[in-house]
Each structure stands twice: as C-alpha cells, then as structure tokens.
C-alpha cells in the first residue's frame, strides 16, 4: 500500500476539485460546448441557447413547463409484478431498478399527468430516458393503458412524449407484449374519437417506435431527435456502407414523409394547444404562459408539479 497515492493524492485532488464550480450550476452543451448557467438552462427548457441543441428533459420538468402554472395531477399507474422473469444478467434486474430509482427519484420510466395546457384539459404522458434508457416494460405499458383509460373517462386528448432505447431486455417477451398492449390503448382513444398526439424526443428507437410512438393522429418530433427501428450501428453493420448525413434524425424523417412536423421545444406547448383545440373542435387557442387554473377542474385532485 502506498500511503501517498492512496490517501494523500485523493485528498489533494478533492481540495482542487472543490475549487471548481459546482457542476449542477453549469451545464455544458454536448454539441457545441457552450456553458449554460442553470437559470438560463431551465428557462431555455434544456435547449442550448447557442446551437439550439435539445438536451434531455425529465418528464417532471417537462410537465412543469407544459401545464398551465406548472400544475398537474399525477395519475396512478398499476404496479406490475417485479422482475417477472427472474432475470439475471451481469447484474440482477431488481438491483438495476433500485439504482435507476435512486438516480432519477422516480418509480419507473413513465410519468402520467392530467391538467390544462392553454386552458385545454389534456392527459399527458412522458417517458424518462434517464430511467434504464426509458425502456418499455410492463410498467410503461400499464402507464399508457392508464393514461388512455383516464383520457377516455374524462373525454380528453392524450399527448405522449416518447424517449426510449426500446424494449426492457430484463422483461424479455413481456416487454415485446407491450407492443400489442399499448396498441390496444391507442385504439381505445381512437374509438372514443379522442386525439392522440405523439411528440417524439431524442432518442425514440426499437419496439417503442414500432408501436404506440408511431400511431399518433399527429406526429411531431423535436429537432434532430434520433427516431428509428433499427439503430444506425446495426444498419451500418448489415449493409456495410456509410449512412447519409442526418439519417434517422427528425428532419430526415420529415423529408421522407414519416412525420407531420418538427417543432422546437419552446414552441411545443403553443403548437399542442393549437392542434388539440382544433381537433377537439373548441374555441381558438389562448397562447402564452398562463397561471394555474383558478378553479380546480372537476374530479381533478390538485397536486403541485415541483419536486
């Protein structure tokens, strides 16, 4: 044991690192390297003020900026059986779950909320890429079913923000079964004549795109989001040729007729309000930041959005 390397050096290092700015005050844009101060970063909805790169935003933060006054009620999602396959890879699945829960402070990879956007009552559901890559397992399926059921019950549109690497490997076939399960949820909305708007965010890939994320009445994506079934690396290996620039990015999909729109995050709320109000055949939109609804909407328990 070397006393200097094991004890002294870490102490010295920790002294120096303490002098650096706390990392949570500044965020570095991974695209252009611009340092964004936390207030600026929050105000810009995690979009780089220099290069417009859209960085990940957690479902809770997104809902806080989406719903009027940041107010929404969280909808309960039925908890599925933990570790249904008793799956073992290099780590146990329950251990991976615990780590993800600790990292994110969330129970699982989906958050469902009801509230108003631009005075328009909606149900919103957002996928959390930080939680095991947003992967689709029984919980994600249950969340979408719960959201659709609530939307039908209250006759509200459903807005879904997708972000996922694909299937939850550790739930194996049950992960695959979420493709038909969530499709049933989408059909419930369709048959009730309710709009289902999908906002694809970076990245949305694999089985998620091959089910609920591609079945929206209107398909919107955030700029430069990677949206695909098979990832670029897999395709490159299969065909052995270089892929065109921007391949499988939002703008590329728009050009190929796979999306309706590519919309900047700061314009997303207004756009959703506009579209939803027309599809619901209600009065014209009211734009801008609105305070929380003055009256509690019927049968909506009031909960504040912030953690």
């Amino acid at each position: 044991m070397n006393w200097i390397s094991n004890y002294v050096r870490p102490r010295i290092n920790s002294l120096f690192s303490r002098r650096e700015t706390p990392e949570n005050l500044w965020t570095k844009c991974p695209e252009c390297g611009t340092m964004l101060f936390h207030r600026e970063f929050e105000e810009s909805l995690h979009v780089c003020t220099d290069c417009e790169h859209h960085m990940p935003i957690s479902p809770r933060e997104r809902f806080h900026t989406l719903f009027d006054g940041g107010i929404f009620a969280e909808i309960d999602v039925p908890t599925p059986v933990a570790d249904p396959l008793e799956f073992k890879d290099q780590k146990k699945y329950p251990d991976r779950m615990k780590a993800a829960q600790k990292n994110t402070g969330e129970a699982e990879a989906m958050l469902v909320g009801e509230g108003e956007i631009g005075r328009t009552p909606i149900i919103a559901i957002a996928q959390d890429f930080r939680f095991m890559g947003g992967s689709m397992g029984m919980y994600v399926g249950n969340a979408i079913i719960a959201a659709a059921t609530r939307a039908v019950e209250l006759k509200r549109p459903l807005v879904l923000f997708s972000a996922a690497g694909g299937a939850r490997m550790q739930e194996g076939i049950l992960s695959l079964m979420q493709m038909p399960r969530t499709t049933v949820a989408v059909q419930m909305l369709k048959e009730a004549g309710l709009p289902y708007i999908v906002v694809l965010t970076h990245p949305t890939t694999g089985g998620v795109t091959a089910s609920y994320a591609m079945l929206g009445d209107v398909q919107i994506a955030e700029p430069n989001a990677l949206i695909c079934f098979a990832g670029p690396r897999v395709i490159q290996q299969t065909i052995g040729e270089k892929l065109p620039e921007g391949f499988q990015r939002a703008e590329y999909l728009l050009d190929h007729g796979m999306l309706d729109r590519v919309t900047h995050r700061k314009d997303m709320k207004d756009e959703l309000v506009t579209i939803v109000r027309m599809l619901m055949n209600t009065t014209p939109r009211v734009l801008g930041d609105l305070p929380a609804p003055s009256q509690t909407p019927d049968n909506t328990p009031q909960v504040t959005a912030q953690k």
């Binding site: 091959a210 089910s211 994320a213 591609m214 079934f229 098979a230």
Partner: peptide, 8 residues
C-alpha cells in the same frame, strides 16, 4: 417507415 409499418 419500418417501425410505422410494424405498428400498423
């Protein structure tokens, strides 16, 4: 649109 085709 591989994913859309599968979903449909």
């Amino acid at each position: 649109g591989q994913s859309e085709a599968i979903a449909r």
